[in-house]
Design a protein around this nucleic acid. Sequence first.
DNA 1: CGCCTCATTGAAGAGTATCAAAAACTGTGG
DNA 2: CCACAGTTTTTGATACTCTTCAATGAGGCG
Lengths: 237, 237
Amino acid sequence: MISSKCNCDRCQHEVCARRVPIFSTLSIEELQKVVNLIYRRSYIKGELIVIEGSNLDSLIIINSGQVKAYRDTQDGKEQILYVFSEGDFFGEKNLIINQAATYNVEALEETNICAIRKEDFQKLLTEHPSIGLKIMEELCNRLDRLEKTIEGMGSKDVEARLGMVLLEFARKHGKESGEGILVELPLSREGIASYIGLTRETVSRKMTLLQNQGIIEMVGNKKVLIKNIKLLEQTVQ
Amino acid sequence: MISSKCNCDRCQHEVCARRVPIFSTLSIEELQKVVNLIYRRSYIKGELIVIEGSNLDSLIIINSGQVKAYRDTQDGKEQILYVFSEGDFFGEKNLIINQAATYNVEALEETNICAIRKEDFQKLLTEHPSIGLKIMEELCNRLDRLEKTIEGMGSKDVEARLGMVLLEFARKHGKESGEGILVELPLSREGIASYIGLTRETVSRKMTLLQNQGIIEMVGNKKVLIKNIKLLEQTVQ
DNA sequence: CGCCTCATTGAAGAGTATCAAAAACTGTGG
DNA sequence: CCACAGTTTTTGATACTCTTCAATGAGGCG
């Protein structure tokens, strides 16, 4: 059975559950149980998956596509907190500490999600403590990232912040090519700006700067070729 | 038995375990088991409890006192990430995702800690999944705080950031007094600056500004009287 | 009381935000 | 394949805020 070529609901579910790190410790039988709990949704680009302040009652796992999690600040801007893609999950906060969603989540492209309802998820958690451990791992990783972000924002080196984001995207969707790593940017300049707390103009300026230094090369508006990743890493650290 | 007046090791341990939110769901018997796993340490002001990069193999819970968790940035400054006090814990990241400490932890005053070794803690976790849930809760809360911090740092309102810190300290160690809330600051101006990513001079200036607006009143260097908390909250939001 | 540390204040400088305009890109339809 | 319109990005000039450097002032502890 080549599940990746089967498009029935069942198999898609299984694929989804398999792909997700938090279920990686489960046996095939356990996985099957999880699959039965999952329901699916699809969203087109720009569609809101979660609205800040609403009661989200499911854990949501990204099957394919990408989303941004953001907040609207009081001065009307949006602050992007996370860019999630395949295998990432969100909504855990609403399940665990029982609070309304603290940010909006919007599809950046066509996105398919798998979701598990709160009750099902909590049952799962008590039956399989290993899932809890995986969740904790991921939460810790997220804390790690946020801590680094804060450190970066504190030490006011703007170029370093931009470099960090480029490296993050490169890790996620970078493709090795002859002259370097080609990265498809999930966010526009404005999005990047909101992600690292700058204005789009400054992001523009800094990008051209990095380009003039020979570190990157912009390919259209949505791609970047990282020509010298070592130099970029130095800029960051 | 008035345990708070008993100073034997045993009781101190128990007090410690009871105080800690992550053990709050345990029965007395279970708590007793936890108590037996705990070992204690004391640190004087300025002493390092955890060194960045070292292998921390225990979960550490603060019994009394206060600590700061910080990183040394490449440009020689320190970036404070957390101020932990009674009942807070840290070190969980090293236990869960098996990595070296990502920050230093230093006692801000005389501090007593309780600690549980990795193996003991992990056994505890499998035996009492509810502890895992509590840890997840706390991790989510921390994520929440960091997300807010990032939002604050992004929307560049410096006074708001200062206000946030003052409110945080007020919540933790504020004492209602006739004219407002008296807060003992755990950090110096420099510490506050490093906590919110500014310089000590800017913190000074903004503090005098808040004082001139009648919102706060400085009492010596280490205390602040919040005279108008509503105004302060408005500044933040 | 004096010393040392920490906090405040001032003036100059650097960097980003802001506003405005030009240029480049994306996608659509002919 | 090209042209066009809308959007996004880049570039320029100015203003504002924070940082930096330097000096003064206040607080705490022996």
